[in-house]
Design a protein around this nucleic acid. Structure first.
Length: 206
DNA sequence: GCCACGATAGTG
DNA sequence: ACTATCGTGGCG
């Protein structure tokens, strides 16, 4: 793994712009692999910026995708998936875990990318976190909850994404996790990950 | 108003 | 394989 800049300097990199997210969801998902996640904490007790490298994501397409929360249209929970791209969609699952997604596609078109795993860097790594493997664990570690839902990813808000120039050696695809109920959509290869990366959840199979 | 059910993860 | 725990959305 190549050396990375200090967390402080990463915090000065420009967040990925709205145009990055305003594209086809699969394209955005693939390109998010290897990017850096910036979590800004406001509490003085926390470091100002925590960083992690995204190593696993899933694409959730619009209303036609039987595994997507958008499948029932713009309900109160999922309406944000239909809104402008570059915003954070957070939901509570099983009453105890949060999952974080980035809204994609043009305004009016539903789409989102679920962030499933990341490699802790900087202060997080120093704190002893070996991996942020699984969407629930990732949100717990970063302190992302429903109160961050709707945040703008393209400003210097609570969550942002930056490109530090690290090229993923390779990106693999597989069916999505935990969507067996979705019929043929459960078999589509819409999960993207960096094969062999230790932070990938489950078996990071090649 | 009710109630079954998760885009999960830790324990047995 | 079992289950904690609660917001969401389908249904009445």
């Amino acid at each position: 793994m190549p050396p990375v800049a200090s967390p402080a300097s990463l915090g000065r990199l420009a967040p990925l712009p709205r145009a990055f997210f305003a594209r086809d969801t699969v394209t955005v998902a693939r390109e998010l692999c290897g990017k850096l996640l910036l979590r800004r904490h406001t509490a003085r007790t926390s470091p100002p910026v925590v960083t992690a490298r995204i190593v696993e994501v899933e694409a959730y397409l619009g209303e036609r995708d039987a595994a997507s929360h958008a499948r029932r249209g713009p309900t109160p929970r999922a309406a944000i998936m239909f809104g402008p791209p570059g915003h954070l969609y957070v939901y509570l699952i099983y009453g105890m875990y949060h999952c974080m997604n980035f809204v994609t596609e043009a305004d009016g078109v539903a789409g989102a990318v679920l962030i499933r795993a990341a490699e802790p860097l900087g202060d997080l790594a120093s704190a002893g976190a070996r991996a942020l493997s699984g969407p629930g664990k990732l949100c717990t570690a970063l302190g992302v909850t429903l109160s961050e839902k709707g945040a703008d990813l393209t400003s210097d808000g609570p969550v942002a994404v930056v490109d530090d120039g690290w090229p993923p050696p390779r990106i693999a695809a597989s069916p999505r996790i935990g969507v067996a109920y979705a019929g043929r959509w459960s078999r589509r290869r819409l999960r993207f990950y960096i094969p062999g990366h230790p932070a990938v959840s489950g078996r990071g199979e090649a």
